[in-house]
């Protein structure tokens, strides 16, 4: 089974590479590059020295934006799901902000964070955009996770007169955890996707900057090479989240089977 899965995956990938190669046959660096040019570009990026610095810069921004979104989004989502009062207070605001693309915030972010001196301003606006991109899926996941808790578990707590922090940490959070973790994984995926756009303006490093910069130099081979790097790191981050998700769940005896 495992062998077939890997084999078919490789076949699909090879077919894609073949078609890619054929339709870009004869293209140079200023056209859409083929696989070979892209590979050469990748090697150039990797040996040129900036790639590793850019990867670190990008991952750093995503981790900050995402972590802040978790720290704010999970409690807010839990509270919306738990308290009708809080839901009525906050939900219209959340629903109103949600449809605004994080990219639309870019000018505002640059305006607000541009004057800051205590940290690299462009970093802050990128982090802010990633925060915005990931917080709504997290809030939504946490809210529906709480709303979906089987009422019998809450009744047990009421019946045994267990309340406060113990209910939060021994009933509500663990009951909501599987859905929250799924939401976090989704949110991290979105954060990574938004990163490139967030790094298009103002910043002088990162994979998004690399794409923008290479385009300005008409080096489309490097554009596609950076896309490949983004794909690989995105898959890696998702893999890490999937691992966290599974190990946290199996520790609680509720792993997906």
């Amino acid at each position: 089974m495992q062998g077939r899965k890997i084999f078919l995956g490789l076949v699909g990938l090879s077919l894609f590479l073949l078609i890619w190669h054929l339709v870009t046959l004869g293209n140079g660096r200023t056209d859409v590059p083929g696989p070979w040019l892209t590979l050469a570009g990748l090697i150039e990026l990797a040996t040129g020295g900036v790639l590793w610095r850019y990867i670190i810069a990008s991952v750093f921004r995503v981790m900050w934006g995402f972590t802040l979104a978790v720290l704010v989004g999970v409690p807010v989502g839990l509270a919306i799901g738990w308290s009708r009062w809080f839901r009525e207070l906050v939900n219209p605001l959340v629903q109103g902000l949600r449809p605004i693309s994080p990219i639309a915030w870019l000018p505002i972010a640059v305006l607000v964070f541009g004057g800051m001196t205590w940290w690299e301003p462009s970093d802050l606006s990128a982090i802010f955009l990633i925060f915005l991109a990931s917080i709504f899926p997290i809030i939504t996941a946490a809210t529906s996770a709480v709303e979906g808790i089987d009422v019998k578990f809450l009744r047990v707590a009421t019946n045994l007169e267990v309340s406060g922090a113990k209910v939060l940490f021994q009933v509500i959070l663990p009951a909501a955890m599987p859905q929250i973790l799924t939401g976090l994984r989704l949110a991290l995926g979105i954060a990574w996707v938004v990163l490139v756009a967030a790094e298009m303006l103002g910043v002088q490093s990162g994979l998004g900057f690399q794409i923008n910069d290479s385009r300005n130099n008409l080096r489309y081979d490097l554009v596609v090479a950076a896309m490949v790097v983004i794909s690989v790191i995105g898959m890696f981050l998702d893999g890490v989240m999937a691992r966290i998700e599974n190990s946290a769940l199996s520790r609680r005896g509720t792993a997906k089977r």
Partner: peptide, 13 residues
Amino acid sequence: VFIFQDNSVFPWL
């Protein structure tokens, strides 16, 4: 104390 029809033991404990 109430005992439920479908088991309400906490699966995470």
